[in-house]
Amino acid sequence: MPLAKRIIPCLDVDCGRVVKGVNFVGIRDAGDPVEIARRYNEQGADEITFLDITASHEGRDTTVHTVEQMAREVFIPLTVGGGIRNVDDIRTMLNAGADKVSINTAAIHNPELVAQASARFGAQCIVVAMDVKRVSHVDDTEPTSARYELFTHGGRHATGIEAIAWAKKMAELGAGEILLTSMDRDGTKDGFELVITRAIADAVDIPIIASGGVGNLQHLADGVTQGGADAVLAASIFHFGEYTVPQAKAYMAAQGIEVRR
């Protein structure tokens, strides 16, 4: 399989500033998303994901400006997500220089948005983000009985939507890729939720990005080898200097995973 599995650092950005901070040696401004993205670009990251958590309308103008600056300096694919509500929001981000836009809650409120956006801008730039939680325990006598559902508002609001059927529906409507985040694992450093990652990777034709829970390099490798993910996304292990992107790639390559080096 010649296509490389992708490693994607993710930046959480509020009003143009990276919120969780970044601890790189020699970086001038640990909160500047453009500087951080440039550093990941130099490290050999395969893509960058920019998650906008800005609440205010005024703040979103700052986001557009940040995306513009990033696109002028970073020559790898850039995905922008967070607060995308309609076709105009998508156009704004693509015109600012994003290569892909990820849609989360808006796809739940209006699934047709995915179809409209895909028809207008092409499936290649429409990522559907899914925040999932396990809602039933794994029964040892019936291991396939676990059910995963979509949640919104950082995992606080249940939607009742079953995750695998939703992924299939999004792929049929024209999503080009799925960004799957386990809200059970996000922030835990316990590794990806591999059961639902594998189930969705097997259920759809489009690529899957695994997200939520990475605490070490073995977790990244597991996302590919056990979860069947095409790409792995992580934030804190890279931001706080625990590991670099080249270290992650060397580790994955040693386990026989194709990576770009």
Partner: peptide, 21 residues
């Protein structure tokens, strides 16, 4: 094609997305 596979039968996702030789 849908359900696109390589010569060994391994699943290949479409779009072809990422860094290839």
């Amino acid at each position: 094609g849908h359900n696109h596979r390589d010569a060994e039968g391994a699943r290949l996702k479409v779009p072809h997305m990422g860094w290839n030789h």
